[in-house]
């Protein structure tokens, strides 16, 4: 599974409680759609750190990196390429 679909499945399963991919568009804002709250975001970050062995720094915890499936995937790829 690509990291993008894995991340999407994680969000679907843990916040929307479904496997239905159509429930979430790749560029949906997780904040504006009310999909994650502050603890949800921490869980998401923990998941990224554990699953992909990266460390999300404080100043990387910004919407530009984390607010949608597309943004998270791009952020993850940048981190992994380092």
């Amino acid at each position: 599974m690509s990291s993008k679909s894995e991340i999407k499945q994680f969000i679907l399963g843990n916040y929307l409680f479904t496997n239905d991919e159509s429930a979430l568009a790749d560029d949906d804002s997780l904040l504006q759609k009310g999909i994650v709250d502050s603890t949800g975001m921490l869980e998401l970050i923990m998941h990224l750190e554990e699953k992909y062995g990266i460390k999300v720094a404080e100043d990387e915890m910004v919407p530009a990196n984390l607010d949608s499936v597309v943004k998270i995937t791009a952020f993850l790829e940048r981190k992994l390429a380092k």
């Binding site: 904040l31 709250d37 502050s38 975001m41 100043d59 915890m61 919407p63 984390l66």
Partner: peptide, 9 residues
């Protein structure tokens, strides 16, 4: 401020 999803902000 919106909320605490991004505490750093």
């Amino acid at each position: 401020d919106d909320n605490l999803v991004y505490p750093h902000k």
